[in-house]
Design a protein around this nucleic acid. Structure first.
Lengths: 254, 254
DNA sequence: TATATTCATGAAAATTTTAGCATAAAAGCG
DNA sequence: CGCTTTTATGCTAAAATTTTCATGAATATA
């Protein structure tokens, strides 16, 4: 070896690689080659060894942390546990005799699935899927708001729906969302935005159940200002860092 | 710093796409191309790979979340083969541009599943399940007739539905039935009878697809006389003994 | 229908991997 | 110490993979 000082033992080098991966969740062979001043072949051999030991996941061009693969596998019901937590929190707001207006979405579906047997509530919904889920409940009254069915999001949209919603006076409206930041709730579908606006207008209170990942993301069209939200429900504690900025904007955070 | 922001590993990129889809339920190829700074070809190839793995649903221009796509897959329908035969016969009556009014029922669902891709029709339906099935069809316009959702039969009922139906002028109405004999079509649910009467009134032609088992049975409430049926469709040949008595009553038997 | 997007395909370019070989250091041994 | 063996590393050329680009076909959208 040319310079003893700079030379690194194999184990030492591999430890460095592991550390890098833990830090950044990925490494590129080319980067490591430069940083450690060895050929890419050596790096590749290292990565192959580490992959064989199951310490990293080798991919074309470098390697990824194992957690990447984990996250990639669980996909069936995305963020299932989180949505379960959100559903339980949301259900605490439901009282006997309430009129509840709801949109669609998988979070809302988790809520519908867990509706307590004893609860006597009236639901208005634009989602056939949610309606069918709620129809399983013995004491729930379910009114499906008719209209054109959107191919993409599978909820009814259009002037007729908006008109019908305007005739309702609901106690609370549960709104599934796609994007939200400190400024407001946003969505990517214009038609759906119109319906959601009508839903908000028709309800005394607006409740937003969402996984925290959707916070601090914005989409094309604005639905309503964040300040108008009556209750924001995420899987996180209201004390969590991510939630802090929203505490001053939203009336109640669960 | 080792991380090179410009280059992203394939797996990493696909993980990003999955996350984006799970978050917003859909992604556009063009958006991803911009966000990840790769060509749309690369995005398309990623989406195709992910679709092949069954992680996302590829559509024109982007991809959708899987959870939206799956609307309960059931193959354990009673008399599946018979209903398949009936469905194929019924579909021959559908023409481009038609306005079709339909009730619910498993037979109707088999029809909806098999709707040819090329057909351009407008559906009005009282069944959320049928609506969701039809919504998978690219060229079908689906209007869900809103109203109270019946717990038992999972179709919308009530004055509102009847009122809405009266405003429609459909070419044909496909009516699932529960009982029928030489005298007339009968049902056991009074509310549903009201809706079916309205559907018949709103349509130029009435088509009854039913398994032959239901022939020669009668229930509590009468819907309409057998003589009013325009087309009766069963899994049997019109020459079959069971069908013979109906030939004189019904205009067309398939 | 006409126009604009998006898709599929194959070829080309860029990058990464593999495998074989050469070199050199490290280790083992008489 | 000399000698051989083992191990680690780098190099090259060919193979494989990934990405882009160009084109016409298919598809949406007005």
């Amino acid at each position: 070896m040319l310079t003893n000082r700079n030379s690194m033992l194999k184990k030492e080098r591999q430890a460095f690689i592991i550390k890098e991966i833990n830090l950044h969740n990925k490494v590129l062979s080319s980067d490591l080659s430069m940083a450690l001043d060895v050929s890419e072949d050596t790096i590749r051999r290292d990565l192959n060894e580490l992959a064989l030991e199951g310490r990293v996941v080798k991919v074309h061009g470098g390697a990824l942390s194992k957690s990447y693969q984990m996250a990639a596998v669980q996909t069936d019901t995305y963020a299932y546990e989180k949505k379960e937590v959100i559903a339980m929190k949301t259900l605490k707001l439901f009282k006997d005799g309430m009129v509840i207006l709801t949109s669609g979405g998988t979070t809302m579906r988790e809520i519908a699935k867990r509706l307590p047997e004893s609860l006597q509530v009236t639901f208005f919904t634009i989602s056939p899927l949610i309606a069918l889920e709620l129809a399983e409940h013995p004491k729930a009254d379910v009114i499906l708001l008719g209209g054109q069915l959107s191919n993409a999001s599978k909820v009814t949209i259009g002037a007729e729906v908006v008109q019908k919603i305007s005739e309702i006076k609901a106690d609370i409206c549960i709104l599934g969302i796609n994007g939200m930041d400190l400024d407001g709730i946003t969505d990517s579908d214009y038609e759906i935005v119109q319906v959601k606006k009508a839903m908000i207008k028709a309800s005394k209170q607006m409740i937003i159940p969402t996984i925290s990942e959707k916070l601090n993301t914005a989409l094309r069209y604005k639905v309503t200002p964040t300040a108008d939200i009556d209750c924001l429900i995420t899987e996180l504690s209201p004390l969590h860092d991510t939630i802090q900025p929203y505490l001053s904007q939203v009336k109640l955070v669960l």
